[in-house]
Amino acid sequence: MGLFSAPAYAYITARVRARKKKLIPRDTYPKLLNMELPEIIRFIEETEYKKDVDELSARFRGIDLLEHALNRNLGASYRKLIEISRGQVNYLVTEYMRRWDIWNIKTILRGKYYGASEEEILDYVVSAGELHYPDLESMARRESVEAVIDSLQNRPCYQVLKDYEGGMLNRIEDELDKFYYARLLDAIGDSPGEKLFLKFLQTEIDIKNLKTLFRLKRAGVDREGVQNAIIPGGLELRGPDLIRLLGLSFSELIHSLDGYSYWSSIADIVSEEGTSLTDVETKLDAYLMNFASRISHYYPLSILPVLDYILHKKIEVDNLRIISRGKELKLSNDVIQNNLVM
């Protein structure tokens, strides 16, 4: 692990730079925000998403069609990265993209638990990781949650799934997410670029843990319940510090975050009464994106430009969905704008 291969990075970084140039420029989003919904749809249909929109137009309508087309394009773009990368880059990208495999496995397990049809389940999967659509189809065809788990015996996540004892899936879902991060952290080598990638990932873990702490503490969940949903391996929230935070109440928690670098981004919107955590989550996500943007150009021949493209592609898909769905659901421009990453 951790092999640094300059030629492999040169090829993949050149490819992702070319792909990044095709992304919608940031200054387009404010313009889209001022457009009417039909104009936005027309705009999206004139971009690289046209093919996906056309191919899905028989199954979906309206903004649902757009959302599925965006997800499909995102999946295809990410899978392309796995296909064109070699060596350690391929290993890292594949491990990073396993978050989509985890997402799809969770969706299929939930669907089976609920008793949804195969078609319904497959509408909500995004084939962007190692598991291809036919794999997901075959999983969705299985009879039960247990049968789906059995079908994953040859996959790494089986070591987590085999502990499922029936009933609700929340515990196993959290364990899958923790397993994903643990594997990814193990996969990262010690080249300078990968060290920064590790720092990004640890920051992402911190952000996720911070969100979990906010959500569960506000809901009054006990220490053990919170601990079960905490991902090990964060950057600042770790060791005795994290153990201390687990035992605090919501109001004590927000008074204890002063020393952490994340606090400055949320200090002005967090309050004890804190009616909504959605703004807090939006600010924390923006913090992570800013961090990723800052490090993305440090080492041009490393995993960082690839990560930069992965994140920018996701931002593009999210922004287009937020604008079009927000317009359809008549959300105010302020709400839409506050949730865009620009």
Binding site: Y113, E173, D174, L176, K178, K208, T212, R215, E281
Partner: peptide, 19 residues
């Protein structure tokens, strides 16, 4: 229901879903 009784994992979801 409490947040832990809704059946979904905490790490992979957000407060928007909770709310």
């Amino acid at each position: 229901k409490s947040i832990t009784e809704r059946g979904y994992g905490i790490i992979g979801t957000s407060s928007r879903i909770d709310e």
